[in-house]
Design a protein around this nucleic acid. Sequence first.
DNA 1: TCAAAAGGTGACCGGCGGGTCACTTTCGAA
DNA 2: TTCGAAAGTGACCCGCCGGTCACCTTTTGA
Lengths: 208, 208
Amino acid sequence: MRRSAILDAAEAVFAEHGYNGATLEEIAERAEFGKGTLYNYFPGGKEELYEVLFEERVVGGLSAVVEAALPDARSLATPDEARAAFHDFVSGLLHHFEANRSVLRLYISEAPRAFNDPDRMTMMVRLFEGFMVTVTRAIARAMDAGALRPMPALPVAHLLIGNVRGLLMAHIASDCLPAGIHELPPLVPDETADFITTVLFDGLLARD
Amino acid sequence: MRRSAILDAAEAVFAEHGYNGATLEEIAERAEFGKGTLYNYFPGGKEELYEVLFEERVVGGLSAVVEAALPDARSLATPDEARAAFHDFVSGLLHHFEANRSVLRLYISEAPRAFNDPDRMTMMVRLFEGFMVTVTRAIARAMDAGALRPMPALPVAHLLIGNVRGLLMAHIASDCLPAGIHELPPLVPDETADFITTVLFDGLLARD
DNA sequence: TCAAAAGGTGACCGGCGGGTCACTTTCGAA
DNA sequence: TTCGAAAGTGACCCGCCGGTCACCTTTTGA
């Protein structure tokens, strides 16, 4: 109870101000507890709080989405099956992040932090390994079955995830701007998933 | 002379430690000048130094690449022309960032910072506007000419840039890891540009 | 009812780093 | 050679915030 209230407040504050800009004071104030209490639940202080938050909410959310859309048991043998599955995956990601904007911000903000510290990067790679492996394996299965043409699967996974991240970042940016400037139409997860899936599967070239 | 030496040192230190982790002390030490001198060249202190660095090197670099590869004068009327032009663009980006890793890090690290402050976000949008407009216009021209099928051009631009960013981030991550762990093959800009262009133009689906 | 344990608290501490400024050095014109 | 201006310097200042701990409150169970 307390623990999750602390995590809720931390999620909001870290998302709003970033790791460095967030203060324990503000987190404590928002969740209505004293700063000292935090150390009962997270003895490692700010860093541990952030790590737990990241692992439980960011990595946990991504894992849930990928396991729902791309389980190893799902057949990806035909183009239509593959298209449907990856559409579900993209749509799941978009719905998840649409409903959890602050988790999205944590996700986007983490990469630069990891660049500055090999230990943190190692941990991040470990945390995301399961997610990346599942996505990559799904791509490889669809290729092996002949639904997708053979290519190195891992870079394709990076492209797919880069696509989703690119569009989401544009939407965060749009949200951050003062009203009226450079506004994007609101994110409609299913339409956006259609868009990404179509471009990714069929390509940009005009067809006869 | 002094000015650019300061910027060189700042580029290295900001790239290595991030904005918050970088200290003026270290920048000064690396470029062999006193901390006070910095305020002669950048009266606004750390923030101004970072902004100038970002505008001159990150935005400047991106603008140079896009203007070389996708000038308004370049014909994009046929699929082959469009493919060649966007290949040049992606290849240019990859070569540029391959040769300027610290600039790449600054670029990747900026987004989260902008999320936390509407003013900074507004400035970023303004700085990148020319770049985005040029890319988007090139895509729209290729669509109008029938080389690419008609779609909203701006989201396609976000996908394209997301693709490049996604692969580059994977490479930065790989570089940051202790030797031997999860290594990616080294980045070969032209091959990677082929890969991105092929996926983007032709799609992932197996063809007859 | 009470005492001990568990949980909670926020004033305080210390270091860290951005920014300042009185002083020194360098430069260039007379 | 001289002198005023410009450039350079780094010890110092000070606000900030993560972390601590002595104290207080609540819970538990006998």
